[in-house]
């Protein structure tokens, strides 16, 4: 699957509406993997036009240097990272970076991060007054001491952050959910009540790798977030669980976690995702997106489907479900 050319019919079949935004394809480049949207465009053959949207690097109110090295390490079929939200601050992003982006190519989504509810609100307000197309509320970053996953693991706190951000913007809000919590569906329900327009499911899982000779964690931050193919089955299940809540409300999901092929992307769509995030997979193959697009288009044709949206949530469970 993959490798075929995408013709005009395929292009139409891959288009979709996501919270009122037109996505050229169901693919979304994930926050933290593609800088502020420019870096990968220097790779010959790469184009932001191959994706529906690009999520920019997590942005806080003030600049952050991030965590000490090592920030990444490979693990079986995955990688751990603890970047620590290195970013130049929301004002710099809006003033210096957004004007350089080509908004005719794709949709750009800001990733709003913070240590306090007030900071989330202030960053949301700054991006609200900018050309950014949408905002992703990052209440699931596992690599910062305050905020991030502390908020995301508590449904009440998650809802508070969403509600506060909702109050200051009419732009689409996408809440990025953490897999490091007991009941992701309950959290999703609370966030919908609080006014989220969509979800990104999932952020990384917390993990640790140890240098046995030194007896120290390999990652400078001691623990990091696990991504890559190793987490894909977890992510697919979480999308399925969150979809059970979202379906009735028409709230779309960006399914993400270890996507490296068209088959992976199809799994997420069938589980309930409307769009599919690509992150770690890009590190191995920077030209992955057109291959996934071609693979999805071929699948749609083979199954007699005229648009990718028809796939969302078409999972047929085997007999009795094992999960509520």
């Amino acid at each position: 699957m993959g490798g075929q050319a995408v013709n005009q019919d395929d292009k139409r079949a891959l288009e979709l509406d996501f919270c009122g935004m037109r996505f050229a394809t169901p693919l979304v480049l994930l926050s933290g993997c593609v800088g502020f949207g420019e870096e990968y465009t220097r790779v010959e053959g790469f184009s932001n036009r191959d994706v529906g949207a690009v999520c920019l690097k997590g942005t806080t109110l003030h600049p952050r240097l991030g965590n000490p090295p090592h920030r990444v390490t490979e693990t079986p079929m995955g990688m751990l990272n603890a970047i620590g939200l290195q970013n130049p601050g929301a004002h710099h992003v809006v003033r210096e970076i957004l004007p350089r982006l080509d908004f005719s190519e794709t949709r750009f989504i800001a990733n709003v991060s913070g240590s306090t509810v007030e900071e989330y609100v202030e960053v949301t307000r700054i991006f609200d007054d900018s050309p950014i197309d949408a905002m992703e509320i990052n209440i699931s970053c596992p690599n910062v001491k305050e905020g991030g996953v502390q908020f995301g693991n508590d449904p009440a706190m998650s809802a508070r952050v969403v509600e506060a951000c909702r109050a200051v913007t009419d732009k689409p809000l996408i809440t990025k959910l953490s897999p490091n919590q007991t009941d992701i569906a309950e959290n999703a329900r609370r966030c919908i009540e609080a006014g989220t327009d969509a979800f990104a499911v999932i952020n990384t899982l917390t993990g640790m790798a140890i240098d046995v000779e030194q007896r120290t964690p390999i990652i400078g931050n001691n623990q990091g977030g696990l991504s890559g193919p190793a987490i894909k089955p977890i992510a697919v299940l979480k999308v399925h669980q969150v979809y059970q809540v979202c379906r009735a409300h028409g709230v779309p999901i960006i399914g993400q976690g270890g996507v490296c092929s068209a088959e992976d992307a199809l799994e997420f769509l069938i589980a309930g995702a409307t769009a599919v995030g690509v992150g770690t997979g890009l590190f191995y193959d920077p030209l992955l997106c057109p291959k996934i697009n071609a693979g999805i288009a071929a699948y749609l044709k083979r199954h007699g489907l005229s648009e990718v949206g028809q796939l969302t949530g078409t999972l047929r469970l085997n007999g009795q479900t094992v999960c509520a």
Partner: peptide, 24 residues
């Protein structure tokens, strides 16, 4: 240690002194 190698992930940073102070 490096992940993307194209500047996208900021995984391979080192501490450098710049005119504006320390930077990764």
């Amino acid at each position: 240690f490096m992940a993307c190698a194209v500047g996208g992930c900021a995984g391979c940073t080192v501490r450098i002194l710049t005119a504006d102070g320390p930077a990764m």
